[in-house]
Every structure is written in structure tokens, then in C-alpha cells.
Design a protein around this nucleic acid. Structure first.
Lengths: 138, 138
DNA sequence: GAATAATAGTTAGACAGGCTAAGTTAGACT
DNA sequence: AGTCTAACTTAGCCTGTCTAACTATTATTC
């Protein structure tokens, strides 16, 4: 297999990316997961099932996540008028503000880190992003 | 800043990579972190402090990790003859076997996923790996 | 149309992974 | 000898994840 060597190298580097992610999230008022969930809500209300699927977790996990975002008022639960079993979730104004602030901080951090690369390295990262995105969602 | 747009896109894709990592680790006999720690031991014994630093965690976290690897006999603790405060950790034969098996499974999974990309996409990923590695360790 | 299935969520209990604070033991340094 | 520092471990807390079991609602089927 031609891809085996690449797979091996990719496997080694995934750990570094986890560390990068940890550092990018450090010191922020919400966790990386909470940020991701808020991001899913920015274009309007979603149902629990959708959110769970989108984030690759089971429903109970999403219930817990949403509980923890609801408690400080970052999201609000609603109901689907067409189906009383369904709970919808949407951003509050405060949640939206938080999302924007955290996004800004994250981008600033990554931008700073990217600044430590050479121009060629940045271009290589940019060129690989679509493929990495594709890898992540089977 | 020129890098801001790249940072924004990278930020978006990091989540997909987390999912990739989760899937690559799913169904294996040890967790992703445990695998990473075993990997650090393959070239010989290490001290706790080294391991913690290398994995970007605090010492107590590594203590717990090693406890969980020691209990099923995948690693063994030893002593440093020169300094009685230091604990060393090394792979057992079983730990080494486990490491090899999990590595093989991970690579097989990633190789399979990479097979779903085009040749050009694989090349883009390969070209970006060094830069991604550099990003992850500041 | 009542009984049964399936669907959407939640609750409860378990475990890994991470942290800080505090304790222990051993070396280093006046 | 006495104090300071270093290397670990222990304890307690939190997040993130899971499965199993429960509730409530909708869909199906006879």
C-alpha cells in the first residue's frame, strides 16, 4: 500500500495537533467542546439529535453539554410546535457574544502560531485543509 | 494580518481532526492517550517528569496514566540508581506487543481513510505534515 | 381505535483524562 | 544539622464520553 507510510506519519502528527488544540483552548471561558457546540447554533435553532450527530457523540452526551451551556444562559431550549418530543436549542444573545469572543481569541492564538511558520509552511497547511476536512468525516 | 484567514480555516478544521482521531482510536484495547504514552517508551525507560512534559500534562496526570498501564502489566516502574526520588517507567513485553498491534490497527484505519482521498489530496496532506508538527509544539 | 412499535430526550451511573492542592521522600545547599 | 528544592503520589474536583434504563410522544398495525 502506497498510503501506509503517509498513514504512519499522519498518525504520529495527530498527537501534536491535539496539543495545539489544547493550547488554543487554554484559558478561555468555555471549553473546546462547548465552543464547537455554540458554533453549530450560530445559524439558528437545532434539535438535540442533529447536534449529537454533527459532533459525533451520543444523545445523552449532548444533553449534558447543553445542560451546561443552558445553566449559565448561553443557550436556551425551545420546543418544536410540530412534534412535542423534539427539543430545540438556540443561542441566547449572551451565547452569541461569547461565541464571537472565543472565536476571536482562538483565531488570534492560531494566527500567532502560524506566524512562527515560514510562508511555504503556511501555504502547505492551507493546501492541505480541504483534504484534512475530508479525512475527518466519513 | 495575512495569516488570520488561514487561522480561521484551520480553527474550523481542527474539530474534524479530533473526530478523525476518535474514530481511529475507537474499538481498540487501549485509549489514544495510553497509546501515545506507550509510544514514548519504545526506545527505553523514561522518567515520569519526562513523560509528563512530552505529553503536555502535569505530573499527577501522568501518575494516573502510568498506574492504569501498570495495573494490566503493560509497563513496569523501576528506580533510578543515581537518584532515589526518580521513578522510571518501561515497556513490558506485553506492553510492546500491545503497542505494535495498536499501531498496526491505527495505521490500517488511517490508510483506509487516506485511500478515499485523491492522489493530489494525499500529497497535500503529506506536504503539510512537517508544518503541522511545528505548529503543535511551541 | 386500542395495542404495540419506534422515536426524541433525559437521568443515572460508570470510566478516562485533565487540573490543583497537599503530602512524602530524597537530594542539595547553606 | 536544618532548610530548601525536586520528584512523585494521593485526594478531590471537573469535563467528556459511554451504556442502560426511564418518560413522553408519535407512528403503525390489526
Amino acid at each position: 500500500m502506497m498510503t501506509d507510510e503517509l498513514a504512519e506519519n499522519l498518525s504520529k502528527e495527530l498527537r501534536h495537533l491535539v496539543l495545539l488544540l489544547r493550547r488554543a483552548a487554554a484559558g478561555q471561558p468555555i471549553t473546546s467542546q462547548q465552543y464547537a457546540v455554540l458554533g453549530s447554533l450560530q445559524d439558528g435553532p437545532r434539535r438535540m439529535t442533529e447536534l449529537a450527530e454533527e459532533h459525533g457523540v451520543q444523545l445523552p452526551t449532548m444533553t449534558v453539554q447543553i445542560n451546561r451551556l443552558e445553566e449559565p444562559g448561553l443557550v436556551a431550549r425551545g420546543a418544536d410546535p410540530a412534534d412535542a418530543r423534539v427539543r430545540t436549542v438556540e443561542l441566547t444573545d449572551e451565547g452569541r457574544a461569547r461565541l464571537v469572543a472565543v472565536r476571536r481569541a482562538r483565531i488570534a492564538y492560531l494566527s500567532d502560531r502560524l506566524g512562527a511558520l515560514t510562508q511555504a509552511e503556511r501555504e502547505a497547511v492551507a493546501a492541505a485543509l480541504p483534504a484534512l476536512a475530508k479525512l475527518g468525516r466519513p
